[in-house]
């Protein structure tokens, strides 16, 4: 079974995202900030990562840059999922190595559409 790591400091968002990615056939793991996510990736690299931007300790963009520098760090498909909805944020994320970008608020349909876009479903 493919795995998806949901990285968000909001437990509510993680719960909503978990339901959606599980319905798409993924096993779901969770992390509350970028550092936690990076620690988890070093132990087990997931197939996909749903990534919030603004988080304490290490934000999503810092995490992404660190992830892509890791051994095997190019493997996960990274989908930003954030309220940072400006074009400038989107291009910054893409340059840092994001594969897709979801602007909050999101629903299951949008996540499924974006997963299809990057070939995950």
């Amino acid at each position: 079974m493919k795995t998806c790591l949901v990285v968000d400091d909001s437990r509510v968002i993680r719960k909503v995202a978990r339901k959606i990615v599980e319905s798409l056939g993924f096993a779901c793991e969770e992390a509350g900030d970028g550092q936690e996510a990076l620690d988890q990736c070093r132990k087990h690299m997931p197939d996909a990562i749903l990534l919030d931007w603004n988080m304490p300790v290490m934000n999503g963009l810092e995490f992404l840059v660190a992830l892509r520098a890791e051994e095997n760090g190019k493997k996960p498909v990274v989908i930003f999922c954030t309220t940072e909805n400006d074009m400038s944020n989107i291009t910054q994320a893409l340059r840092a190595g994001a594969d897709e970008y979801v602007m909050k608020p999101f629903d299951g349909e949008i996540i499924e559409s974006k997963f299809a876009e990057v070939g995950l479903v």
Partner: peptide
Amino acid sequence: SQFEVQRGLAIQRLVKHFEQ
């Protein structure tokens, strides 16, 4: 709307073909 541009559209195409 933000919802409409997230249905079926790859983010690269949003960046390339739209103005916010």
